[in-house]
Design a protein around this nucleic acid. Structure first.
Lengths: 205, 205
DNA sequence: TCCAAATTCGACCGACGGTCGAAAAATGTA
DNA sequence: TACATTTTTCGACCGTCGGTCGAATTTGGA
């Protein structure tokens, strides 16, 4: 079965990617093949290029993450609660190491291309969810924005950016100040009341 | 003279980089050597690796840009005028094509690594300038922020990010809405009066 | 003029992404 | 079961490229 084989290859690549500093450079197609227990030629029967494999691994990780995000916000009553939940899920998924998380593992590496691709993917996948939440929120009057889509994109982009250590390898104190600023920005973008996003910069439990 | 040779190599690389889609992939060390009229071995006498050459080209471009930014803000009377001038210089330098600008040329390519490196460099070099402007502004009361450095970093990062088409290949209308939102965010971050950053989203002259 | 240090050079090396065509496995058909 | 056709597997092979190396050349000071 074709899907099965593709998964085997992606699993092999994912495993390797998590275990090296710069997957784009250090991981070879031969290694993916060996690790998957198949010949190199077979890899190219299912994928066009090494890049395509790496992209597929990221895509797969995010498409599973995105489902979680979606589910986690579905049960929330209020718009505000939805946003809070979405952020919490994202931060947990992307930045808190629970040792069995590809996305976190790849964030911890030194691979520029990987970081970039992950940022792009995160933005592309999460923005639509937030956009919908905001649109609903505008309807019921809990948030105020004339441009929900642009607001959503900017909010998600900023968060991704902010938490990406390779841009600002800042200490915890500086990060705290930035998150505080970010919370303020959110209040402005969404015209919510002061302190609505305080949960962002207080340690959970 | 050593500096002269290094410049010859960087010029050669820069010229090639501007003329291809994905310099990181398409430009070879042989080409840099040929184009500079020297042997490949000599390249490695001055540089450790191809990457180092590319980094040096970017570094050089920004270090000249940064001087312009600095000079352009120096003559401004007010803090507000300084910020406006800095932004104008940045936008002009980074995003408006005047056909003899490396930074713009490289932005127009498809090279992920290049984009990433340029974003990082832009943030790293421009933030300190803005930080100083903000600190001065806080002193004379024209802007208000408890965290000038973090504000500066976030402001610069957002602008770089916003204007980077590879993240949001948005149409002009969407870009306009984002810039408007960004202006609003600036007002919040710096606690300036409404409309202070209107110039961001009105076409110059 | 001589010698050591600095510089130049391109043939060469190893690694890697990707190709190819032959072989094997799977599937269909009677 | 026997045969034909399609799908899948495979690794030897190819071309390219980043980087090395040591011999040759140039430089510059004594």
């Amino acid at each position: 079965m074709k899907e099965k084989k593709i998964d085997i290859i992606l699993n092999s690549a994912e495993e390797l990617m998590c275990s090296m500093e710069e997957p784009n450079k250090d991981m070879t197609v031969d290694m993916i093949a060996k690790n998957a227990g198949i010949g190199k030629g077979s890899i190219y029967y299912y994928f066009e290029s090494k890049d395509e494999i790496i992209d597929a691994v990221i895509e797969r990780s995010y498409s599973s993450a995105i489902k979680e995000y979606f589910v986690s916000t579905e049960n929330c009553k209020t718009t505000y609660e939805k946003i809070r939940q979405l952020f919490a899920s994202m931060i947990k998924k992307e930045f808190i190491d629970n040792s069995h998380n590809v996305i976190v593992a790849l964030h911890l590496q030194d691979d520029i291309i990987l970081h970039y691709k992950m940022m792009m993917t995160a933005i592309k996948t999460v923005s639509p969810i937030l956009t919908q939440i905001l649109k609903d929120g505008v309807k019921d009057g809990s948030v105020h924005t004339e441009t929900p889509q642009e607001s959503a994109e900017m909010i998600v982009a900023m968060l991704t950016f902010l938490l990406n250590r390779s841009f600002f390898p800042s200490d915890d104190a500086s990060m705290y100040r930035k998150l505080k600023l970010y919370a303020k920005v959110l209040e402005t973008c969404l015209e919510t009341e002061k302190g609505s996003f305080g949960f962002l910069f207080t340690k959970p439990e």
